[in-house]
């Protein structure tokens, strides 16, 4: 593959808890090409946010390699990291708690520029901030407003402006629209897609909403309890899901059309088991309707079943 912007190899992140080792991200590998979007889906607690944070080294990874343009971030020194990090940014989930309530919109957007000492003088700084505000559709008159005066959609635009102002190449979007109403959600999704086209941005798009992920992604990765269970191009995963968990996840989406009225469906029973000291074998085995004895032991590896379609299941 060309233009391999980001490559993750066997990334692991374990947390030490009183009950044992919590396997938040367990041996995940993938790569993203420049200008593409990888969507990461899964239920709460499956490690998707930890994955996003670990890639940006906001959590120190336990094991594995994070190659950004071929440079390994994990082993890179402080200086090297400082040079690379402005190119990788993050948009946070909750626009209500991720902004400092005592800073004005202008200060919030200027902060990354000041921290990274990007601008030579005040004039340039002002200029960059104004540009960023315009790009994300924030009116100039709001520059002196505080976050509490603004609604969720506008606040999320501030978050996007903060990520964009350093002109990054790669952005981790951690559930950027899940706290917003549908009509606002659509505005933000369109904005993110416009920016991607304009600036050839690369996204890692984390969400639990499958219809959103299909809309924005080129490739989709489904996670379950820290493991990647299936990865394929977006259309492929919706047309031809192979892993039982992916199938169950897709079947559970309520579809807004009359046909789904009072429809009976195959439902997944039970809930996500604990990621603390997981048992060997397939992590989904406890809820899987097709689980066999062989699923409960040994390592289940991700295999390529057709071009670009990877799945971790013994029975396929």
């Amino acid at each position: 593959m060309e233009d391999k912007m980001l490559e993750i190899r066997h990334l692991k992140k374990y947390f030490q808890t009183p009950a044992g080792k919590l396997h938040a991200v367990d041996d995940v590998s993938f790569q993203i090409e420049q200008g593409k979007t990888l969507g990461v889906v899964g239920e709460s607690g499956c490690g998707k946010s930890t994955l996003g944070r670990t890639i940006l080294c906001l959590n120190e990874p336990t094991e594995g390699k994070i190659l950004f343009h071929g440079k390994d971030l994990v082993t890179a020194g402080k200086k090297e990291r400082k040079r690379l990090r402005p190119k990788m940014q993050m948009i946070f989930q909750d626009p209500y708690s991720s902004l400092n309530g005592r800073m004005t919109v202008r200060q919030l957007i200027a902060e990354p520029l000041i921290v990274n000492k990007v601008c030579k003088n005040k004039k340039e700084l002002e200029q960059r901030v104004s540009e960023a505000m315009e790009t994300v559709g924030l009116a100039e008159r709001l520059s002196m407003a505080y976050p509490h005066e603004l609604d969720g959609g506008r606040r999320q635009r501030i978050g996007i402006a903060r990520a964009l102002v350093l002109e990054p190449e790669f952005i981790v979007c951690d559930e950027p629209v899940s706290a917003l109403d549908v009509s606002i959600q659509a505005q933000i999704l369109n904005l993110l897609m416009d920016l991607q086209e304009e600036r050839k941005l690369t996204y890692l798009f984390i969400t639990h909403d499958l219809s959103v992920v299909k809309h924005i992604s080129d490739e989709i990765m489904v996670m379950y309890l820290g493991k990647c269970v299936e990865r394929a191009p977006a259309d492929e995963i919706f047309e031809n899901p192979l892993h039982p968990y992916t199938k169950a996840l897709l079947a559970a989406i309520p579809i807004p059309s009359v046909e789904s009225c009072h429809k009976r469906r195959e439902l997944l029973q039970g809930e996500v088991t604990s990621p603390v000291n997981p048992k060997p074998g397939c992590r989904f085995a406890a809820r899987c309707p097709f689980a066999k004895e062989s699923c409960r032991s040994g390592e289940i590896l991700l295999r390529e079943v057709s071009a670009g379609h990877f799945v971790a299941c013994n029975q396929i």
């Binding site: 239920e43 639990h208 169950a248 996840l249 559970a252 309520p254 439902l267 997944l268 809930e271």
Partner: peptide, 9 residues
């Protein structure tokens, strides 16, 4: 989550 949502609904 969606799978739990489906169960509850």
């Amino acid at each position: 989550d969606v799978t739990i949502q489906a169960q509850i609904l």
